[in-house]
Design a protein around this nucleic acid. Sequence first.
RNA 1: GGUCCGUUCGUCUAGGGGUUAGGACAGUAGAUUUUCAUUCUACCAACAGGGGUUCGAUUCCCCUACGGACUACCA
Length: 516
Amino acid sequence: MTEREVRVRFAPSPTGPLHIGGVRTALYNYLLARKLGGKMLLRIEDTDQNRFVPGAEEYILEALAWVGIVIDEGQGVGGPHGPYKQSERKPMYKQYADQLIEAGHAYYAFDTAEELDAMRARLQAAKVPNPQYNSITRAQMRNSLTLPEDEVKALLDGGAQYVIRLKVPRKEEVRFQDLIRGWVVVHSSAIDDKVLMKSDGMPTYHLANIVDDHLMEISHVIRGEEWLPSAPLHVLLYRYLGWESTMPQFAHLPLLLKPDGTGKLSKRDGDRLGFPVFPLEWHGTDAETGEATVSRGYREDGYLPEALVNFLAFLGWNPGTQQEIFSMDELIQAFSIERVSKSPAKFDQNKVKWFNEHYLRAKSNAELAPYLLTALHEHAIVCSQEKAEQIVGVMKERVSFPNDFWQEAKYFFQAPTEYDETVVSKKWNAPVAAALTAYAEALPTAPEVSAEGLKTLFNDTMAAQGLKPGQVLQALRVAVTGAAAGPDLFETLVILGVPEVTERLRTAVATLPAAA
RNA sequence: GGUCCGUUCGUCUAGGGGUUAGGACAGUAGAUUUUCAUUCUACCAACAGGGGUUCGAUUCCCCUACGGACUACCA
């Protein structure tokens, strides 16, 4: 077989926000494409007009861009095989369905929904293990295999509603080699006569998918495991269409499971478990009540895209080394489809958080400052870039998300109105208050406003007061920040500035009861 | 129910016929830190069960159990 260009595709349906499992599928496609020097395509599979959700397509594009997946060809980008949206390709599919009919591999079916229901009910009643429209049951249904030729023609000419179904052989083993699972064998009796063309003239996923993958010269189909059961059907389609020699290689990814219990991670789990299942925030409407809903997104929750990517890459894949931190480029270098595991993975909130902390700490203060500045701006607080950088600098070791900066660093901008009670009751007393007053008086004379300088001054002042620094330190922190814990105290004082610190010390001494 | 897929610490996983079954997250303890956090160190903790094959199986085979996906004119 000749080496052909590697072309992979990510093909979501615009039925809502792309979920995190979809992002991982896209990521693996992307990694393989880049690793092998191939192309990454994006195709929108919107053949179900009933499930179309406005905004979903834009969301998909934005989400992929945010995580850093670059599309080489496809929706939103263009390319030589367009259009890349199936609804716009509608006229292209019918000929292939016709080709299958002519070759005797497909047929017209005129059954109504009621007739289909009746058939299934009948089979169920007869305790047929797997009720389906197949090589046996099709003999009892109204289709071009059972109806006289002239009646079929009359129905067609008369504009009767019909679908085109694949004529799946009765006894045949269908096998294909999955890149992740090895040989997968399914007997054709387990496959039903799938609808290829719907009565609205749109192809179903199965037909559109195969036709488009063929036309777009896709070399590898990497998709979720939920597609594994229909893969044999797709193999049959390639065969009957005469495309078996260029059939793409399949790789079915293990599913992402709920963190608790079991079952695949679904869109609803996010709200239930308190973590996002979507890359970006999504504003939708409740299907039943019609009310506006908001679903959390990783981006809005403060996750860095590189952390999400690193985490997702390791859910079902690993490089075989002990390295865990990988940039996108490193992932591309290290990736191989053979190392994707077969078993499903539970989503681990702790691990994503850990990756996020790691990437947060690796960022420079200048990169992080905007997060604080944005929050400050929302609270109408003015702050210089320089000061913001200093603050995130002392804070980044202690937060998990950039969104936490504001909450944690509030006291740099607002004098405390409350003081941590435990510290006050344990550490605050008359001598301490007096010592802090002395420190407040000494501060303006500090020879050097640096963490070291203020610390020395503090120690000297305490010595003069006959106190050990340790007896007063906690009180100083509470007096200045209101909190019991925080970053290095003297760094904090420097950022606050001497005038502000003296002011706050005076307020604290005046406010807090110096009992005992 | 049927078909298919899967099963190593709580979680993500490495490994592989003979290993003290390795790492990471979480958890616990200690060190550092004026505090909290960070950091560092240590500890805890797993081959689903039963049959084979074999000198030897967690690793290969079979069965069972359990989990999952699919079973639409949805993708």
